[in-house]
Design a protein around this nucleic acid. Structure first.
Length: 904
RNA sequence: GGGCGAAUAGCUCAGCUGGUUAGAGCGCCUGUCUUACACACAGGAAGUCGGGGGUUCGAGUCCCUCUUCGCCCACCA
């Protein structure tokens, strides 16, 4: 279905020194993706897993298959980025990761696409006929379908493309058929004659989930039905759909309703149709609503249908499948000639007009109510009596309910668990037949000569009973009837001995949007239990919806969407992914500004650039000589800054692990303390970013420059630490920004050709406990001096001397001050370089008019800043802000009693 | 009609079991092209944590209530 594109040439291997000044995502990304593919980095190897005698845990994610005709939008970008982050993380953490991609044939959606094409040619599907229509759709899917999978490669999705699946492939179709036949044989699939949701545009029935509620401003019409034997009296019924009155077979009142008790058993004349119908008593009539009298239209209302069954009433269908007025076999004479063939909404107007003319219309009041619409074409759904195939859901729902209640499967965010439980507890049977042509055909066969029928795994040649001609059911199955098998059918089910099925089932995480919790997620869990005896995953992660800044859902019709490929072209895939992941609060909607891509995605690009520049510095500074492994460095040779950054790295690793982890429950169920843990991708991103940018780049790199630029043995220590810290940082970041991290990692000194960061081990903390290095004090002193410089507007180039003095705090015997002083003396070069100041331990010259002082370092040591020649002038310049400054500088201000400083 | 969520700096959002001066990015202000990076660096301003009550030694964090948005579910014609 998807021809894999020819691989671009391998990424250019440049020498460290040749690293370009500017990162070019476009030139890097596709080449790297081709490298990964060529090396089989994303291909899962069953033999490595513990389930096949290896030592790696299997980690499986099934991609929610996008519609085969879909093109990539931000929702896909969001969904697949999350999955990719998880899969890349686990792959590095040592799991044998399988992310299985694929597409959905999308019954109604795809059929609609082709029908639109046909409409443009002035044709309908009936002009082509079933076989030709299906052939045309297949051809369309074969040539243009599945493009979205190639688009996913552009955002870096690390799917196992050797296992790509399609819900309408022969293998998946066989699984669908097997599942149907088994459920049929088990009595869990049955044909039901009842009122279902009917889309008059798609000309098919819909499941409850596919008929979406939407509030509309309608009218509640009050219509007089007069008593047959006394036309001067009558009952007033209230309805929002007067056109259905032609199908009325009774009016119902509540048996307890004193107003109407006496009328029960008498008859009224149905206006327009002029048919006599009975007044019946049924609990369904609510005395408090409207007039308390309900018209009963069993063929066009699910409640009325139930009433009709209870009272054994006829059930005339008075509309055609297309939604025009017309008659079924049982409805003869109900629809007047002038209404036949008239669209239901036009007919409503005509009927109301006629009732008004006859004086039967009492009133029409505005009425806001929810009306069901087709989820694919938004047409108002018409309830309609028909024969459909149903799945009996109660028995299937029970284990799925238990899975979540027991903690076998958790749903994040947690609040969705209640929604899930509530839905399953009230579950109703699932209408799985669709009157479409595109999909899996219902595998039920009929013999018209002897009446035989059965669901079969293989097409029969003739009737097994009478050798008569058999025909197959015309309907196809709901798309979701194939989707719910996705976690098992993709791995080889119904062959339970299939290697992939045994290796990768049950899987781990399902990542999707809350909208399809019922459509898909719940049903997959049911199918998992029914056919494999276990849930297909232990975690359901429901992410938010992509919205614009007005919180409107991004959609084609609103034109407020963002094309992920446009973002990739302008800022790079890593920038797109960074923005998605760093803003991904648990379950919160993702807000992007389609009107300002720069504002939305520049931070991601900037971050990539930062990484690029750190690498440029590192490669220049580390040179091309061999860099020692961090483990080869004697701990005694590590400087304060070295120990600090290594400790910060450990903390960053811990934080990332905590934000992401646990990868799976420690037992068969989620223990309470783990149940809500992990999957906090934004926190993970922030921890990694803070480490590499605010700690490694802002402090360690700056503090180590002189060591790196010098010569001698200490340079090797600094090089080893720097390369190690950056290497580990790249690994931490790789799941989020895979391209730039791969590009840089492969340039690090010591990189072995053919190794990928995508398969490199996930960082593990080195130290056993956080080590106080004293470097924090160095930072504090530097910050204080910088603040003083800034507060007093000392020109950047101007040299200053900072006098270090002690308060003489002896409460601890002076230990703290001695400790602090030692650090200051040892780290003086670093402080002087980063704060651009000279430290002095000389006493401050008494009477110096320009002396200033500051309390620094936890208020244990006084630092006096001298050499600020322009203090007086600056002081006057800032006179207005004096009050503010005093507040900030606290006790410093007290010591500033220099002469000539009288307030102005 | 039932259920749920959100409301925190100008903007988009963190703040998980209540505990020291409420955080980030962008934006804003002041400097700086400091030999990796101006897609950057240094310093800074900015929040009565939607309103009102309550519990507590202590609440953005728990309870009640109101307001405004949003979502899900639903056979009241």
């Amino acid at each position: 279905m998807t021809a894999s594109a020819p691989l671009p040439p391998a990424s250019p291997r440049s020498q460290p020194a040749e690293i370009p000044a500017q990162y070019d995502p476009a030139a890097t990304e596709s080449a790297l993706y081709a490298d990964w593919t060529r090396a089989g980095v994303f291909t899962a190897r069953p033999e490595r897993t513990t389930r096949q005698g290896g030592d790696a845990d299997a980690f499986t994610i099934m991609m929610p298959p996008p519609n085969v005709t879909a093109i990539l939008h931000v929702g896909h970008g969001l969904n697949n980025t999350v999955q990719d982050v998880l899969v890349r993380w686990r792959r590095m953490a040592g799991d044998e990761a399988l992310w299985l991609p694929g597409t959905d044939h999308a019954g109604i959606a795809t059929q609609n696409v082709i029908e639109k094409q046909l409409a443009a040619e002035g044709k309908t599907r009936y002009d082509l006929g079933r076989d030709a229509f299906v052939a045309r759709t297949e051809e369309f899917v074969r040539t243009t379908g599945g493009a979205i999978l190639d688009q996913l490669k552009a955002i870096g999705a690390s799917c196992d493309w050797t296992r790509t699946r399609y819900t309408l492939s022969p293998e998946m179709s066989a699984a669908v058929r097997e599942a149907f036949v088994r459920l049929y044989e088990d009595g869990l699939i049955y044909r039901g004659h009842r009122v279902i949701h009917w889309c008059p545009r798609c000309l098919t029935s819909l499941s409850d989930e596919e008929a979406e509620h939407e509030d509309v401003e309608g009218k509640l019409y009050h219509i007089m039905y007069s008593l047959t034997d006394d036309p001067s009296q009558g009952l007033t019924v209230a309805t929002t759909r007067p056109e259905t009155m032609l199908g009325d077979v009774a009016v119902a009142v509540n048996p307890e309703d004193e107003r109407y008790k006496a009328l029960i058993g008498r008859t009224v004349t149905l206006p327009i149709a002029e048919i006599e119908i009975p007044i019946i008593a049924d609990e369904y009539a609510d005395p408090a609503f409207g007039t308390g009298v309900v018209k009963i239209t069993p063929a066009h209302d699910p409640n009325d249908f139930e009433v009709g069954k209870r009272h054994k009433l006829p059930m005339p269908v008075i509309m055609t499948p297309e939604g025009t007025m017309g008659e079924g076999a049982e409805a003869s004479g109900r629809v007047p000639a002038q209404l036949r063939g008239v669209d239901r909404f036009a007919a409503r107007k005509m009927i109301v007009a006629q009732l008004e003319a006859e004086g039967s219309l009492i009133k029409a009041e505005p009425h806001r109510h929810a009306v069901r619409h087709c989820y694919r074409c938004d047409t108002v759904v018409e309830p309609r009596l028909s024969d459909q195939w149903f799945v009996r859901m109660k028995p299937l729902a029970e284990p799925a309910l238990e899975a979540v209640k027991s903690g076998r499967t958790r749903i994040l965010p947690e609040r969705h668990e209640a929604v899930y439980v509530n839905w399953l507890e009230g579950i109703r049977d699932w209408n799985i037949s669709r009157q479409l042509w595109w999909g899996h055909r219902v595998p039920v066969f009929y013999c018209d000569s002897c009446g035989w029928e059965d669901a079969l795994r293989e097409d029969p040649a003739d009737c097994p009973k009478c050798r008569g001609v058999v025909r197959q059911d015309d309907d196809v199955l709901d798309t979701w009837f194939s989707s719910w098998l996705w976690p098992i059918s993709t791995l080889g089910w119904p062959d339970t001995g299939a290697r992939d099925l045994k290796t990768f089932y049950p899987g781990d995480v399902l990542v999707t949007a809350p909208e399809i919790l019922f459509f898909w997620v719940a049903r997959m869990i049911m199918a998992g239990y029914r056919f494999m005896g276990d849930a297909p995953f232990h975690t359901v992660y429901l992410h938010g919806t992509a919205r614009d800044t007005q919180h409107r859902k991004m959609s084609k019709s609103l034109g407020n969407g963002i094309d992920p490929l446009d973002v990739v072209a302008r800022y790079g895939a890593d920038a797109l992914r960074w923005t998605i992941v760093s803003g991904l609060g648990m379950g919160a909607d993702a807000i992007f500004d389609p009107a300002d891509l720069e504002k939305t995605f520049a931070p991601g690009r900037n971050f990539a650039t930062k990484l690029w520049n750190i690498a440029r510095f590192l490669l220049t500074a580390a040179g091309e000589e061999r860099v020692q492994r961090i483990d080869a460095i004697d701990a005694a040779r590590l400087t304060r800054a070295d120990r600090w950054i290594l400790s910060r790295l450990d903390i960053a690793i811990d934080e990332c692990d905590a934000a992401l982890g646990p990868a799976r429950p420690s037992g068969a169920q989620w223990p309470v303390e783990q149940r809500r843990a992990g999957m906090r991708l934004n926190e993970y991103a922030e921890s990694a970013r803070r480490f590499v940018w605010n700690e490694l780049a802002d402090w360690y790199v700056e503090a180590s420059k002189s060591r790196l630029q010098g010569s001698g043995p200490d340079r090797d220590v600094a090089r080893a630490v720097l390369v190690h810290a950056f290497d580990q940082a790249l690994r931490l970041l790789h799941p989020i920004v895979p391209f730039i991290t791969e590009a840089l990692w492969q340039r690090l000194p010591g990189h072995v050709d053919g190794e990928f960061i995508a398969r490199a081990p996930w960082p593990v903390r080195r130290g056993t406990a956080p080590e106080p290095s004293g470097f924090e004090l160095v930072q504090e002193v530097i910050i204080r001096i910088r603040q003083l410089r800034s507060d007093f507007a000392i020109a950047p180039g101007k040299p200053v001397t900072v006098h270090v003095a002690h308060r003489g705090d002896t409460t601890d015997g002076g230990a703290a001050e001695r400790y602090f002083d030692t650090i200051l003396r040892e780290e003086a070069p670093t402080i002087e370089r980063l704060a651009r100041a000279t430290l002095s331990w000389d006493p401050i010259p008494t009477g110096t008019p320009n002396a200033k002082a500051a309390i620094a370092g936890g208020a244990t040591v006084a630092m006096l800043l001298d050499g600020a020649i322009d203090v007086a002038r600056e002081r006057m310049k800032y006179a207005k802000e004096l009050a503010e400054l005093e507040k900030q500088l606290g006790s410093l201000e007290k010591r500033l009693a220099s002469p000539g400083f009288t307030s102005k």
